[in-house]
Design a protein around this nucleic acid. Structure first.
Lengths: 145, 145
DNA sequence: GCGAATTCCTTAACATGTTAATTGTTGCGA
DNA sequence: TCGCAACAATTAACATGTTAAGGAATTCGC
């Protein structure tokens, strides 16, 4: 029988929000000079890692909902960081690809981003870091494989 | 020397987003029938737990930025779930208090919300659950005390 | 093949996140 | 007390999150 909620100070959703805020803060600082947002950075990272892909796959790998991705892709296209092309076999589909300018933006900030990640790993300790990722994955409904 | 970013599949920010999505999904389902959002629920929860407080403290405990809280408080006031009063000593400040209707909304869904939390605790196991909260707290810059 | 489901993507509408500028109030020092 | 720094809260502007509805293209059953 459920009796009471945990105090908000020990609430899992709130803890996730605050942890995310703590992690994203230095990353946002880094991105502020690039003129792109955290989500736009994430999309470019996925495209850089996997290469061109259709929008559905991109949305899934970027953890973005379709309506958000539609807007983000349009913004990135206007900035000249990605290109969009229709699939000729199935004209419903669209492929997104990172441009040279987009790849350069990633390359120019790779070291800085890596260092931020390393700092967090050092803060937690390597073992704790891996443990955290494993536990977070257990909460992810899309991590069945 | 930083060499490369982790793959996006093993990225801490993305893992945090996905975990949050997994946790919030059933909570949003529960809230959909109440007509209030996740953030509005969080504000009511804090007010229910601590009682009336000034906006600054409320924003801090709810993990919301001021501009968001301004809008959310206005919405909750229109719904009759909170009241706002000016501090007579310092008229810059404002106090927010939950109403009977707001408290009833919390009470009516307390069991359901508790069960959702218990389910996640069961999924992870009690020890892992506590470990996760501890690790997340280490990433929270505001958790120095 | 024809039309109803399905799929991929976009648009719309509203709430929130984020940063910066603005307003109203208080306190303080020349 | 005057002017200014500091503070609390709001507003503005833009990007994203979320849900629902819409449009275009494809697939499948009959």
């Amino acid at each position: 029988m459920a009796k009471s909620l945990p105090t908000t100070a020990r609430s899992l959703p709130i803890a996730l929000i605050r942890a995310r805020e703590g992690v994203m803060s230095p990353i946002r600082d880094m991105l502020s000079e690039t003129g792109i947002t955290e989500q736009q950075w994430r999309v470019l990272r996925v495209l850089s890692e996997y290469g061109a892909m259709d929008t559905k796959t991109l949305a899934d790998r970027s953890s973005l909902l379709f309506p958000s991705l539609t807007r983000i892709a349009a913004t990135l296209r206007e900035k000249g960081l990605v290109t969009q092309t229709r699939d000729k076999k199935d004209r419903r589909r669209q492929f997104v690809e990172i441009t040279q300018a987009g790849q350069k933006l990633i390359d120019d900030h790779l070291d800085q981003a890596s260092q931020i990640v390393l700092d967090f790993k050092a803060t937690l300790g390597p073992d704790n870091y891996e443990t955290l990722l494993d536990l977070l994955a257990m909460l992810d409904p899309g991590a069945h494989d």
